[in-house]
Each structure stands twice: as structure tokens, then as C-alpha cells.
Amino acid sequence: MVAAMSFKTINNVIETWETIRRMPEWEKEIGVGLFAKFFKMEPEAKAIFGFREDLDVTDYKVLISPRFVAHAMQFVTMIDKALNMMGPSDEMLSEILMDIGAKHARYGVKPEYFPTMGKALVSVVGSNLGEDVFTMEVQESWIEVYNAMSHDMIKGLGEVYTVKKNDISTEIEPQQQVDSAIWT
């Protein structure tokens, strides 16, 4: 997974994540922004995350509701832990991400949600860092790291689906690698 990435790529992500972590209420800010964007792009995913399909993520009351904020912050904590494991613990990180993917498969998370979640994450990180810090090179680093991590989670999803469907072999499409040109 991460082992094939350059030091520069990993360093770009870790350094910019550290900048994010120094912001006031960073977990809440990133998490709420991320899920608001994700649910706008994938409205049917609301139910999978335990929210009503008619949840209006443009409503300020929704965005500050304790349940929405808690879920968003929990997701950011997971990202934080994964990014902290990058480097010497690549194999363990891959196994953990596959386990997380398997857990999410039981909730009904679909592989096609991962590129959308990645786009939302990179967008929120970029808007919080600003153009001076979030350069095209940094953006491409984030896309590469996200694709690698989500690949392991999707692999975990696939294993659960294979077991779940017993003898019926269903191919899970490999993760779409997101072309950085569509992110701009």
C-alpha cells in the first residue's frame, strides 16, 4: 500500500495534516465539512450512516447536531490514526484498513462511495489549508495516499461480500483511481 509511495508524497500529506491538527476544533471542522460534502454528492449514503434520507446537510441545525458532529469527528479520528501509522507500520495499517472495510461492508457501504469520499476529503482539507499550502503537488499527494488507503478498505469490503455470498463468486470492481484533473 503506502510502501510504494515516495517519501515526498507521504511527507506532503503528513505535514499538511499536522497543519490541520493545529486548527481550533479541527476534528469537528474537517469532519462536518467532509460529511456535508459527501452527503451532497451521495445522498443515498445517508441511510448507511444511520441518517434519514431527507436529512438536509445545508441546514445549520443538522451540521451542529450532536449526532452528526459525533459521527463526523469519529471518522476524522480514524483518518488521523491511519495517517499516524503511515511509514514503518504499512503492513499493519493495511490489515487494519481491510478490517475497517469489512466492518463497513456489514453496514452496506458500497465500493463506489470511496472515490466520492476521497473527493470530499481532499476538498475539505484543501479549503481549510488554502491555496498557498494546498498546492497541486500536495493535492496529488493527498489523492495518492487516499487511493492507497481506500484500496485496502475496498479489499476488506470485497472479502466480506465474498464470504457473505458463500459460493456465489461476485467480482468487486477495483477501486477507480481518481484522475487528479477532475479535482480541480
Rank of each mutant, 00 (worst) to 15 (best):
A3L: 10
M5Y: 04
K8F: 09
T9Y: 03
T9D: 05
N11I: 00
V13F: 07
V13Q: 09
W17Q: 03
T19E: 06
I20N: 01
R22C: 12
P24L: 03
E27Q: 13
E29I: 08
E29M: 10
V32G: 04
L34G: 09
A36K: 07
K37R: 09
F39E: 02
K40W: 04
K40V: 05
M41L: 15
E42R: 10
P43C: 08
P43K: 01
E44A: 15
E44M: 07
A45W: 02
A47Y: 08
I48Q: 11
E53R: 02
D54K: 15
D54P: 11
V57L: 13
T58K: 14
T58E: 14
Y60P: 11
Y60Q: 04
Y60K: 07
S65F: 09
S65V: 04
A70Y: 10
Q74M: 13
Q74I: 00
F75R: 10
F75H: 08
V76T: 15
V76P: 11
T77I: 11
T77L: 14
M78S: 12
M78F: 13
D80G: 08
A82R: 00
L83K: 03
N84Y: 09
M86C: 11
P88S: 11
M92C: 12
L93P: 13
S94W: 05
I96S: 09
M98D: 10
M98H: 11
D99Q: 14
I100K: 09
G101P: 07
A102I: 03
A102N: 06
A105M: 03
R106G: 05
G108Q: 12
E112C: 07
E112W: 05
E112L: 04
Y113Q: 12
P115Y: 01
T116R: 15
G118V: 03
K119H: 08
V122R: 07
V122I: 15
S123L: 04
V124Q: 06
G126L: 00
S127G: 01
S127Q: 03
N128W: 00
G130H: 02
E131F: 05
D132V: 02
V133Y: 07
M136F: 09
E137Y: 02
V138S: 06
E140M: 05
W142D: 05
N147W: 01
H151I: 04
D152T: 08
I154N: 05
L157F: 03
Y161A: 04
K164F: 01
K165R: 11
S169Q: 12
E171N: 10
E173F: 06
Q175W: 00
Q177K: 14
V178M: 15
V178Y: 05
S180L: 06
T184L: 15
